[in-house]
Amino acid sequence: MNLKNLIIFIFSIGSFFAIWEIYYWIFINNPFILAPPSRVIPTFYDLLAGNIQGFYMPLDAIYSLYHYFLGFTVAVAVGFSVGLIAGWYKRVERFLYPIIELIRPIPPIAWIPISILLLKLTHTAAAFIIFIGSVFPILLNTIYGVSSIEKKYIEAALTLGATKTKDIFIKVIIPASMPAFLTGLRVGSGVAWMCVVAAELFGVSHYGLGYKIELGRLYHSPDIVISYMLAIGIVGLFLDRIYRTLEASIVKWRRGYLIE
């Protein structure tokens, strides 16, 4: 980031905070309904430092990330492996398609009651919601990635002696579908992170960024609520950055195809 961009960045955030601050003092001016940045920022610091009884933000972030990874890794494993098979074997795809299309439009939040009934108020229940939310982008992108592989690559591999299905999968299908899979991974991660908050709001565990938002509301402390909202945004941004970096390093062979 050069100096000019840095100035724009600071100005952008600064004006957002300024409008928010002014809006609060003119129209709200009630600490039980909303908090201005001048109150959120100190609260945010106190939450990070553990100065507020019953709230310790780093621990909550760790719990939320735990829920996220628990659900998301299963979604990646299932989405990628089923996607490879369904993308390659058209019959499997045709079989799965109606099921996918039936379940996919159901919002992950709608699964929360069933998840709690089945799995009780556990970390697994949270992970299940996250799994439901993130498995479809990964699955569908992987299927798309595999089924859009150009036939010439398969034929080239065959004529060069890769006659075993295993070789074709490992040496052609997986690398060729990597860009689409990684897009699915990034989109899926975004959905997964949103689902973390939704799942925790329902109290599946007593720690977590989402749970503490709800707790903050019960305490009538909008400064705590907003601090945790910001934390969710910051961690989400960080996760997205990780996947973008991963994407750029794995598919560097594709650089020439992208118009930037």
Binding site: A156, L160, G161, T163, P175, R254
Partner: peptide, 30 residues
């Protein structure tokens, strides 16, 4: 298909995810 009759395609069909060396090594790897 088999390695005793290798085909060279009009549009090359090089594997874009492999380097030049990686492409050439393909037949030896399998």
């Amino acid at each position: 298909p088999g390695q005793d009759r290798v085909m060279v395609f009009q549009d090359y069909a090089l594997f874009p995810w492999r380097t030049v060396l990686g492409n050439i090594l393909f037949g030896l790897e399998v």
